[in-house]
């Protein structure tokens, strides 16, 4: 097992290198100039601009710049944001907690909802409950997150005035009252993300349960006299959750991209909002860093999914 994890880690190195190269090439080949703001500014003479280019190393060929960037990255130097002159890592460090808080809770909530709903659906397939759950699941993953977000704002903020419109990330929770405010402002973003994720997960739980229910071991468990509850929870559910757990690990990157939209709607200043703003400002170091972090997340999620699968299912042998 240890050997397998090690091997998978080694394989993921070229993948990450490939991704970093792709992202770098896209930026290097693109038209547009990080110093475009200076070019439009008549108070910056041409020679000064040229000196800045030289100092920033923008005149080197792309592969030299790539290796410089990569080696700096590996040493932990992620550069400075062009727009705010703050180290990129600090900037991301400020934004990440907001994103993780909302995302983590939303994901947890959708897992807690999806498993029981999926199990109940699979136990009585095509029953009234199953049909309602299926319809909701389809609605959940067909509703674009930005639309759900806007409709929720329209209902609960504009018309009913129950919940705040804009997420206040400067709020520090230090008393009961601020805690309630924090909960109130988190309700809508979490609902939006959880609705989408629950829909997908419910379908997977249901399908996996339906695969396992007719299996021989289930009949054995029933015929030796176990009650239905034990059969379902201890035997079927445990086996059905194996593929679901890997899907939960694989879904982490998806939910991060969902965050980009949600943060835009509710004005949460998380990492997704930072990405959009950096793209609009041509803030290359920040864009590269965030895109790269997303890529690392995908790779880690894949690795985790494989490892968990192996741990949970002894039938899988790594050779």
């Amino acid at each position: 097992m240890g050997l397998f994890i090690l091997r998978r880690l080694i394989i993921s190195v070229p993948t990450l290198l490939g991704i970093s190269l792709v992202i770098y090439m896209v930026l290097a080949l693109a038209p547009g100039d990080p110093l475009a703001q200076f070019a439009a500014d008549p108070s910056v003479p041409v020679e000064v601009r040229e000196n800045i280019r030289q100092a920033l190393g923008l005149n080197d060929p792309w592969y030299i710049r790539y290796f410089k960037w990569l080696s700096a990255l590996l040493r932990g130097d992620w550069g400075f944001s062009f727009a705010s002159r703050v180290p990129v890592l600090d900037l991301i460090g400020q934004r990440l907690p907001q994103t993780l808080q909302v995302l983590g809770l939303a994901y947890l909530l959708s897992i807690c909802l999806a498993i029981p709903i999926g199990v109940l659906s699979a136990l009585r397939p095509y029953s009234l409950f199953d049909n309602i759950a299926t319809t909701f699941a389809f609605i959940g993953f067909s509703l674009p997150t930005f639309f759900t977000g806007l409709v929720l704002i329209l209902i609960f903020s504009v018309n009913l005035r129950w919940l705040p419109f804009i997420y206040d990330s400067t709020l520090t929770v230090n008393s009961w009252e601020t805690f309630i405010r924090q909960i109130r402002q988190m309700i809508m973003p979490i609902t939006v993300l959880a609705l989408f994720q629950t829909g997908t997960l419910t379908r997977f739980v249901r399908a996996s349960m339906l695969d396992n229910l007719p299996a021989d071991y289930v009949r054995t468990a029933r015929s030796k006299g176990l009650n239905e509850r034990a059969v379902v929870l201890r035997h079927v559910l445990r086996n059905s959750l194996i593929p679901v757990v890997t899907l939960i690990a694989l879904g982490v990157p998806t939910i991060f991209t969902g965050a980009i939209v949600t943060e835009q709607i509710f004005r949460i200043n998380g990492i997704g909002e930072l990405l959009i703003r950096s793209i609009q400002n041509s803030d290359t170091p920040v864009i590269m860093a965030i895109t790269f972090i997303f890529a690392v997340l995908v790779v880690i999620a894949n690795l985790l999914a494989d490892v968990i699968y192996g741990l949970l299912d002894p039938r899988i042998r790594y050779s």
């Binding site: 693109a30 991209t257 995908v298 894949n302």
Partner: peptide, 23 residues
């Protein structure tokens, strides 16, 4: 295929469109 699967799709999409839109 594995490399493409690991690409962060939405950030990359936003980036490509932003960069190549005007051209």
């Amino acid at each position: 295929t594995d490399l493409f699967l690991a690409l962060p799709v939405v950030p990359l999409l936003l980036l490509l469109i932003f960069l190549f839109r005007d051209t």
